[in-house]
Structures are given as structure tokens and as C-alpha cells.
Design a protein around this nucleic acid. Structure first.
Length: 906
DNA sequence: GCAGTCACGC
DNA sequence: GACGTACGTGACTGCA
């Protein structure tokens, strides 16, 4: 067995290290309500050492329970070491599961500590000529008497571990004692962290001196009269028993009964399926990748296969229709392919109208394989129109907004939408990155139906639905529909248990139609003005470019922060204000500080502003104008933000410039569909602060809103302790920033940056604020507590956000969690309210048969293009629906402005 | 393709 | 002294 390597992992010390040291965000998992960060850290480290050392033999040593038990055998000795933190204890069974799945032998034995096991196994292994490597996190576990190499895991940071080799010689040199002497020293001076009491009053230096001259604790007591210092001798005599006990505690028992045969520790392969299941459950995505378990995904749970009936003629379609009608509900899976830039066509649709009863409708497309039978898209839509438009037939689906939009373009109004699993999954947990049917099926039904990505392929391997083999596509779509059908019940039950029925059925579900309609309606653009503006920008940019090149006396790419950095900080020698990961920082904050050092700076700032306008807004908008409608049809996403807000893409209409006049001009290109319309822009005034006043019940703040005061001025007068008339604009500005900070949950750090003051001053402002609004202070405290206890915080309407960060032992991570806990109910409730208002406005416009339609939402603002004859009515609907969306302890206030471009409505 | 930097909104 | 600092989307560079 010569030269074979045995690696022994000191389980207890490393998991402790991992628990206290590795507290990165990526280490937290919310699944099962477990905080499995230590497990993650441990496995991460273990994997690293396995790769580096590649040992033939391997084991992990654990204490059987809290590490104090062995010491309790000793009468009169009270254990002082803290037990294992409960969160960590909770994680131990999970860790053991993972180790078992990795087929790694765990060693533990009643009456012995991990150190004893390590010692005994090391001695054994060395006796048969093995090389032993011990991976440990403990600083002091080197008093082992073997020749093992110790790989210490010293400081760890999130996602990063460093190795440090400690050989015996270096350790002993550091302490200047031999291994056996070390135990005596430790016995004399004690080590509270390791539960060794020692002789009271004897410190490190005295202990070292004593052991150097006497050799061992036993020798000291045999020659106690030779200890000349009287105080020391007295202490030694008085604590003779303690010294003996402490020595025994400090010594590692290398002669424990055989716990295993070394040959049994030969490494075995991981149980990959089991490991994958575990990591998947724990949401250890990075580890799945690292361990190469990703491609095993389909093997973890076998992909379900099923032959699905394919409908490819009108007779079959009619039969299907009758089955659906008599069942009065069905799950729908639609397969949309992009035909060209804007048009989407239906490649097929699957329906499931009863458990395990489904069919796939094969539809026509321009690219479809020639040997496939199919039904014309229009024939299908004609046949199914009454089913789709019948509110009595309930429809279940996933991501139904796109389907609704598609149908709208075909002149069909989908009615009876009763469940959208994607939206439901988002309501249950808005922090997820994806909401795929296949994931929901895994989670709720424990079946693997394969993901859409696997079906379609990626990059070059991508195959559109049109070009897919019929058997493959019908099977996948049919299974999706069947899964959807089965998902309604369990997912609905979770909503029920969470008290989120109303949030789901009254707010989110009806909102799908509203968003689809906004996308369908689109926002009309004045392309002439856009081009004009583009030319104006182009002219200014080229003048600026020339000026910048002149001042730099060379041409370079101003858009490249890297090249710009070289010019500013190397060529022109300007002082470096801050650095980024890759080099000099050149952001606006830095440039502003440099602005009086060189005249090139102001040109660069202006250049940046104009280039942003031109590329993102002017060219960005030109690229997304639909040639058929002359409008832009942004996508509104309902499942992206963690707070409940809606997001907008392609283009993002929620960040059109407004602050600076130059940028604001872009709003002139946003116009109504035609001259018969105008734009009505309705804005909530301070909705977040009003929500804050309501949630906290702070009387001071409620009063301010009831009296319709200028809230920032009022805050300023209260925080700075001056009369309202004496509030200066500077004071108001600062109060506004503090209000802003409270609403967005920023900390003193960000506030200090915003105001250009020190962090301390920022802290003072925040404290002063909480002083004046005691209700807010109380709330901030309570909500964090609540979040910690329940694991989540909720909005007024029951939207949740889970916050594992609150339990982090990392200060910053925890502070982050705390700020989120304070902010999410505020921002999220405001998001709830405007969603309610949107549904109300939409229904009101429809039921009154008006021509006016919602076209945009920007977080606290709704925009309607109103028929000129309906302006007053629309203004009334907006004001009433929005102000009446929720009844809070303070009134909601809405301001409506009308204009012929978006620019004019401010 | 991807990460990094920068900039716009609420 | 750690650590990175509300929520989003998009354009651009520079590297693989």
C-alpha cells in the first residue's frame, strides 16, 4: 500500500468554518425552508481539495453530537464551549445526506471527538505506509503526533477559498515546543475555545517556561518544590486535578477502538442521480454545474414519454372541440414561432380536457415539413373561436399573455382565463429566475417532462417548432398540457394556504389581459421628429468628438472606458478618483469631480449624455417601430421583479428620459394614434410615502398627508427643527433624499453618496428622521423581526418576498436583508395598488364602451390615449379608479394632465 | 456569447 | 475591518 494517499476531512471544524466564514448570497437556499449555506460551503471546499489532492482513500470525521459531550464525563467540570448553533445543527442531516450521495465514508463514534478519530485513523494508515493528508479548519488541531500533512483552510470568503500548507516543522517552530510538549502547555494554560480549562492564572508565557524546564505536567508535580515562584506554585498545588484533566482533554486519543478498516476508505464514485436530486432540491445550481450533473438532468427523473393523439383534419378538430365543450374546462399549450420581425404564427396547440386526456393540433406554417398533415391556422381559429371566446369554458395555461396577444391580432378575444401557472408561481415566490412548466411539474408533480430548451435546442442547434418532427412536438406539447391540467390543484392550494387567493385572482390574473391589451394597442411614434432629433444629436456629437480629440491630441474610442481611462489618467495625468475591477473608473461621479481640472471633462460628460440619447433612445426606438402599425409595442413582463412591479422591454418604456431637458425632448415623439386622440397622463403623488404612512400608522406623517402638505418640506421642518416657512431649498432637498432613501430602502452609504455628505452625517439624518416619525421607527423594527420569524415579508395585499438574508451571519448580507424587509412592503404595496387601478381603469373603459385605451404604465403613472370626445370622462375614470384603488389611512392623490404628446403632459 | 461598465427611469 | 449597498433594461467594449 506504499505511497497511497488517505485524505481525512475534519468534518466538524470545517463545517463550522463554512458556517461562519462562507456567507455569500449564492450560498443561501430557500428551498425546504432550510438555510443550507454551511452545507454549500463545506461541499465547495471538499470538492476543491478532492480535485487538488486526488486521494485514493478518503473519509470525513464527525463528532457524533455537540462537541462538548466527551468532556462532560469529567465530574465537576462545566462545559464552557458553546454548543452548535441551531441553524447549523439543522443543516447537519442535510450535509450527511449529501456525503452519503457522494459515497464518502463518514466516521463518528460515541465517546470520541472528530480529532480522536482523525488521530487514530492517521496512526493506522501511517503504520501501513500510507501518506495522510488532513484537511482541517481548526487552528489548533495540529498537536497530532503523526506525520500527516495538514491542509488548513484558513480565511474563507464567499465563493473563494485559499489553501495554506502547514507542515509539522513550521507549527512546532512557531510554538517552539515538541508535539508532546504542546499538549502539556495547552493543559497548563487551558484553551477555552477548545473546552480545556487549564490551571487558573497561568498564561501562555508561564506555561511555556514551566514545560521547558520540567518537560511535562507530571514532572512539575513530582518536583513541585522546585517551582520557585510562590504565587505560581500555590496555583499549581491548588489545581492539581484540573491540570491532569486538562492534559487529558488536550491530548488526542490515538488509541480509540478500531472504527473502520483503512482499506474500506477507498474512494467510490458519486451516486450522481442522488446527488443531482439533492442539489436540485437545495437549489445548488453552481454545484450541479461544478460536479457536471447538468447533463444528467434528464436521468435524474426519467423524461416521461407518451404518444399523444394528433389532430390533423377538420373532423378530428370538431370532435376535439366537442370534448372540450362538454368538459367545460381545458389546459392549453400554444406553440408560437416568429415568422418575421413582428408576426407570430401558431405552429400547433395542445389541449388537455381531463386527466391524461389530451390531443395536439397540427397547424400550417410556411416552413413546415412537407410530409406532415396539418390544419390551416385560419381554419383552426374559425373552428375554435367560440370555444376561446366562451367565458363558461375555463382555460388554464402558462404565460397566457402571449397567447392572448396573438389571438387579439387574429381578432379573437380570449375569455374564461382561469389559471396561469406562470403567474401563480410568481405570486408564490417572485424571487425565482425562471418559471418553466417543466420546473413546476418537477416541483409539484415530481415528473420530468423535459424543458422547452431541450426540445428546441440552443444557438446553432435551434429548431423552430415549425421544423420539428411531428411525433416529438406533439408528445412534448401534449405532456405539457397534461402537466398543466394537473398543476392547477396543487398550485392553487399553495396560493390558498399562503392567503394569496385575492392577490392572484383579483389582481394578477385580470392584469394579464390588461397588459396584453396595452401591448396590442402600442404607443404611436412620430418618426419624422425622431429623425430630426437624431440629426440634431448627430451634429452635436460629431462637434464634441472633434473637440475631445483635439484636447487629447489623438483619436481614440470615447465609448471605451478603458481607452478613455488611459487618456485621462495617463496621458493628461488627472488624479484617479476610484477604480473598477478592470481599471480606472470613468463614471459620471468621477468625471464631475474632475470637471474643473480639465476642460475635456465637460465635453466627455455631454458626449456621454448625447450618445446615450442617440443610441438607446433614438436608434433604439427606430428599431422597434412596427412597420404595419407605426407604433412601438413594448413587452410588459409580469414575473420579473422581486417587488411586484411590472417591467418593460423591447423597448423599455419605463426609462424614457425626463430629468434633463435635452433628454426629455425624446418624449415629443410619443403621440396618440391619430388626431382624434390625446394623451392623458395620471400620476400618483407620493404613493410610496403614503403607503408608508398607512403601514406604519405614524400619526405625524398621516397628519401631513391629510393636510395635503408638501411632504418633503414638512419632513425638512421636522427633521431640522425649524418652522415650515424657514425651510430652505437645501433643507428640503436633503429631506427629499431621506424620504427617497426610506422608500427605496437605501442605507446610509447610498444616502451619503446621493447627498455628497459623510456616511456619519447620512446616518444622523436617518436617525433624526426616525426620531420624528416614531411610528416608522417601530415599523422598521417590527418588519425585520417579522421577516426573521416567518422567513418572508408581505405587502398589504399579501405579495411575499422570502428573505433568507436576514439569517445570514454576515453583517452586510444581513443589513441588506433588513433594508429589503423594510422596503419591499412599501414598494410592493404601491405596485399592488397601481395594478388594482389598472384593472379598474381597463374594465371601466370597456364596460362604458369607450374608445380610449391604456397604453403605458410607469410604476406610479398610467397613460391613456383618450378620444377627444371622451377626455373628461377618461380623466374622471383615471382619478377615481386610481384614488379608489385602495382605502388607506391617508388619501391617495392623483394628478391628471393632458397633451398632444407625452412631452406636453408634464 | 459573456462579463464589465455606464446610464436612464421610478 | 469585513463587504457591497433599492428595482429594473439596454448599449457598448473587449475578451473568449
Amino acid at each position: 500500500m506504499n505511497n497511497e494517499k488517505l485524505m481525512i476531512i475534519d468534518g466538524n471544524s470545517i463545517i463550522n468554518r463554512a458556517f461562519y466564514g462562507l456567507q455569500g448570497k449564492q450560498l443561501l437556499s430557500t428551498s425546504d425552508g432550510l438555510y443550507t449555506n454551511a452545507v454549500y460551503g463545506f461541499i465547495n471546499i471538499l470538492y476543491k481539495y478532492l480535485e487538488e489532492e486526488n486521494p485514493e482513500y478518503l473519509c470525513v470525521a464527525f463528532d457524533l453530537k455537540a462537541p462538548t459531550f466527551r468532556h462532560k464525563e469529567f465530574e465537576g467540570y462545566k462545559a464552557n464551549r458553546k454548543g452548535m448553533p441551531p441553524e447549523l445543527a439543522m443543516q447537519m442531516p442535510v450535509l450527511k445526506d449529501v456525503l452519503d450521495a457522494m459515497n464518502i465514508v463518514r466516521l463518528e463514534m460515541e465517546g470520541y471527538e472528530a480529532d480522536d478519530i482523525i488521530g487514530s485513523v492517521s496512526v493506522c494508515a501511517e503504520s501501513v505506509g500510507m501518506q495522510v493528508v488532513i484537511v482541517t479548519g481548526d487552528r489548533d488541531s495540529f498537536q497530532l503526533v503523526t506525520d500527516a500533512t495538514r491542509v488548513k483552510m484558513p480565511t474563507t470568503r464567499a465563493g473563494k477559498t485559499e489553501t495554506d500548507e502547514y507542515d509539522k516543522a513550521r507549527i512546532l517552530e512557531k510554538y517552539g515546543v515538541s508535539p508532546s510538549e504542546f499538549i502539556d502547555v495547552k493543559g497548563l494554560m487551558g484553551d477555552p475555545s477548545d473546552n480545556i480549562p487549564g490551571v487558573p492564572g497561568i498564561g501562555e508565557k508561564t506555561a511555556l517556561d514551566l514545560i521547558r524546564s520540567f518537560g511535562s505536567i507530571e514532572n512539575i508535580y513530582e518536583n513541585i518544590e522546585k517551582v520557585t515562584k510562590k504565587g505560581i506554585r500555590e496555583k499549581l498545588e491548588k489545581n492539581r486535578d484540573m491540570a491532569a484533566l486538562s492534559k487529558r482533554l488536550a491530548a488526542i486519543d490515538c488509541a480509540m477502538p478500531e472504527i473502520c478498516k483503512v482499506v474500506d476508505l477507498r474512494r467510490r464514485d458519486f451516486d450522481r442521480e442522488r446527488l443531482y436530486d439533492l442539489f436540485k432540491r437545495l437549489e445548488f445550481k453552481k454545484l450541479i454545474e461544478k460536479f457536471g450533473l447538468g447533463e444528467q438532468q434528464s436521468e435524474a427523473l426519467p423524461v416521461v414519454q407518451k404518444e399523444i393523439a394528433v389532430i390533423d383534419d377538420l373532423d378530428g378538430l370538431k370532435l376535439l372541440k366537442n370534448k372540450i365543450i362538454s368538459s367545460d374546462h381545458c389546459a392549453v399549450v400554444y406553440l408560437l414561432d416568429k415568422e418575421d420581425g413582428f408576426k407570430k404564427s401558431l405552429a400547433g396547440a395542445a389541449f388537455c380536457w381531463a386527466e391524461n386526456e389530451s390531443a395536439y393540433v397540427s397547424l400550417k406554417s410556411g416552413y413546415q415539413l412537407t410530409d406532415v398533415k396539418y390544419i390551416e391556422e385560419s381554419a383552426f381559429l374559425d373552428e375554435f373561436r367560440d370555444v376561446l371566446e366562451d367565458p363558461g369554458i375555463k382555460k388554464y395555461g402558462h404565460e397566457m399573455k402571449d397567447f392572448i396577444l396573438y389571438l387579439k391580432r387574429k381578432g379573437i378575444q380570449l375569455k374564461g382565463l382561469d389559471f396561469d401557472t406562470m403567474i401563480a408561481a410568481y405570486v408564490i415566490n417572485p424571487s425565482k429566475e425562471t418559471y418553466r412548466i417543466s420546473e413546476l411539474a418537477q416541483q409539484y408533480l415530481a415528473v420530468n417532462i423535459g424543458s422547452i430548451e431541450e426540445l428546441s435546442g440552443k444557438g446553432k442547434a435551434f429548431v423552430s417548432f415549425f421544423n420539428m418532427e411531428l411525433g416529438k412536438i406533439s408528445s412534448a406539447a401534449g405532456l405539457y398540457a397534461e402537466a398543466l391540467f394537473k398543476l392547477i390543484k396543487p398550485v392553487g392550494e399553495v396560493l390558498e394556504q399562503n392567503g394569496q387567493r385575492e392577490l392572484y385572482y383579483d389582481i394578477e390574473l385580470p392584469l394579464i389581459e390588461v397588459l396584453a391589451d396595452m401591448e396590442y394597442r402600442g404607443f404611436k411614434i412620430n418618426p419624422g421628429y425622431l429623425k430630426e432629433f437624431s440629426a440634431e444629436l448627430e451634429e452635436k456629437i460629431s462637434a464634441l468628438t472633434k473637440g475631445i480629440y483635439d484636447m487629447a491630441s489623438e483619436e481614440f474610442n470615447i465609448n471605451s472606458p478603458k481607452q478613455l481611462g488611459v487618456i485621462l489618467f495617463e496621458k493628461l495625468g488627472l488624479p484617479v478618483i476610484k477604480k473598477t475591477k478592470t481599471g480606472y473608473s470613468t463614471d459620471a461621479e468621477v468625471l464631475e469631480q474632475l470637471s474643473d481640472r480639465h476642460e475635456i471633462i465637460s465635453l466627455i460628460l455631454e458626449y456621454r449624455q448625447l450618445v446615450k440619447l442617440k443610441s438607446t433612445y433614438v436608434e433604439g426606438l427606430l428599431n422597434v417601430i412596427n412597420p404595419e402599425t407605426g407604433k412601438i409595442h413594448s413587452s410588459f413582463n409580469q414575473t420579473v421583479t422581486v417587488t411586484g412591479r411590472i417591467s418593460s422591454t423591447e423597448p423599455n418604456l419605463q426609462n424614457i428620459p425626463v430629468k434633463l431637458e435635452m433628454g426629455r425632448k425624446i418624449r415629443k415623439v410619443f403621440v396618440p394614434s391619430d388626431e382624434s386622440f390625446v394623451l392623458c397622463d395620471a400620476d400618483y403623488s407620493q404613493i410610496e410615502l403614503r403607503v408608508l404612512a398607512h403601514i406604519t400608522g405614524d400619526e405625524n406623517m398621516i397628519l401631513a398627508f391629510e393636510n395635503n402638505e408638501d411632504i418633503h418640506a414638512t419632513t425638512a421642518s421636522q427633521v431640522f427643527g425649524v418652522a415650515k416657512e424657514e425651510v430652505t431649498s437645501l433643507m428640503r432637498g436633503r429631506a427629499k433624499a431621506v424620504n427617497f432613501g426610506i422608500v427605496y430602502g437605501i442605507g446610509d452609504f447610498s444616502l451619503s453618496k446621493d447627498l455628497g455628505i459623510t456616511r456619519k452625517e447620512a446616518r444622523r439624518y436617518i436617525d433624526g428622521y426616525l426620531e420624528k416619525y416614531p411610528g416608522v421607527r417601530q415599523y422598521m423594527h417590527d418588519i425585520v423581526q417579522q421577516g426573521k420569524e416567518g422567513g418572508f415579508v408581505a405587502t398589504l395585499f399579501g405579495r411575499r418576498r422570502y428573505l433568507p438574508e436576514l439569517k445570514s451571519s454576515n453583517f452586510n448580507m444581513r443589513s441588506f436583508g433588513e433594508r429589503i424587509a423594510m422596503n419591499t412592503p412599501i414598494q410592493g404595496s404601491a405596485a399592488d395598488i397601481i395594478k388594482i387601478a389598472m384593472v379598474k381603469v381597463y374594465n371601466e373603459l370597456k364596460s362604458r364602451g369607450l374608445k380610449s385605451r391604456l397604453v403605458l404604465q410607469v410604476h406610479d403613472e398610467l397613460i391613456i390615449e383618450a378620444d377627444r370626445s371622451e377626455i373628461e370622462e377618461v380623466e374622471g375614470i383615471l382619478k377615481e379608479s386610481m384614488e379608489g384603488a385602495a382605502s388607506l389611512k391617508v388619501p391617495l392623490s392623483v394628478e391628471v394632465k393632458t397633451g398632444s404628446t407625452w412631452y406636453e403632459t408634464k
